[in-house]
Nucleic acid binder design. Sequence first.
DNA 1: CATCATAACTTGACAACGTCAACATTGCCG
DNA 2: CGGCAATGTTGACGTTGTCAAGTTATGATG
Lengths: 201, 201
Amino acid sequence: MMVCMSSSDTYHHGDLRNALLDAVGAIIDEKGVGAVSLREAARRAGVSHSAPGHHFGDKLGLLTAFAERGFELFGSGMQTALDEAGQGRPGFDAIGIEYLRFALEHRAYFEVMFRAELHDSTDPELHETSHGAFGVLMRAVDDMDLSAYENPDPLHLAIGAWATVHGLATLWLDGAISQFTDEDLFTVALNVFALQASSEE
Amino acid sequence: MMVCMSSSDTYHHGDLRNALLDAVGAIIDEKGVGAVSLREAARRAGVSHSAPGHHFGDKLGLLTAFAERGFELFGSGMQTALDEAGQGRPGFDAIGIEYLRFALEHRAYFEVMFRAELHDSTDPELHETSHGAFGVLMRAVDDMDLSAYENPDPLHLAIGAWATVHGLATLWLDGAISQFTDEDLFTVALNVFALQASSEE
DNA sequence: CATCATAACTTGACAACGTCAACATTGCCG
DNA sequence: CGGCAATGTTGACGTTGTCAAGTTATGATG
């Protein structure tokens, strides 16, 4: 009855799932995560208002899929950074910088990935991808020589470093330290890392 | 015409503003920040559905007032912790612990205070109270002897420490490190602080 | 090639929400 | 005591998430 407005005039979209996830990213970039709605995503993908619900179950399902996509990009980016920098302190630093870089560059993913109420943390696929990304960090820490550290608990060291870059990223994204530039954030993070490792040398 | 259902059967509530802010806290504690609505707050305060809008302008105004209340509590708590611990490292550590304690104990305030889209950051009163809280941190750093630090920039040191505790708090609240106890968080934070200051002794 | 189950999508409906305009009540100040 | 500003209420409108029921395409099977 009604002519479909999208690029191809078929009843079936073809790749609606990805189109909707792209739409979510565009909405967040333009109007913030609060403006994400199933109906707006549907509008941008050129489908009816309840097509997204059919694909993802509900709003939380859509955002969960978006977060999962983000964790895949995040994990591979951190792995690449680690590979290029090598083991030890250089790899550790590179992961921290990559973490910040990802948060600043892919704000939309970052927010949905790390905000509890924006996704379903019990989703098994999300759990898998997020765990994989954290594994890169733990591997980098395990590859370090911790013998000279005062408290050489790898988990504690990893969490401490993670918290520092995560805190910098969220504080910046939430506007609390908006006077800082990207470079400032990198500098502060590397300073904290360097101080943490000062007993190493 | 209609009998008011609240404790006192007066048309005027008396202290509706505070009652609504209390309601917001209760809603967040029970069902999360996403469940906050002007109408639900009105229901809990026993007033009509649009009374909150009359007081606070709109939903953002209500949450902004809630955040402001949180920053007052936060600032006075940090000041008290600093006063009790004294100057130097003890005061610095005490502020970090107090920061974590506040986030864990007053989750509702913390979320609204530090999430950009949940309040109006241009609100002058909010700006004032939040700036006051940050001033406590800067005062604690200024009271320290930084001469032995490798990079004795007070602002960078303050932001680094702030980011660490803020990251720990948000990661924990968002469930990313839910296997940790409160004490674990304190330990990690103090470890990072101690390592940062290891060149001091 | 015909058929038909099923996946993919639409349509229509409902309750809840934020917001606004118009109205009602109260306390207070002259 | 009279009116006026503050404080709430009522009703309405458009938007949202979600569900049920209907419609169209796909692809496997015969």
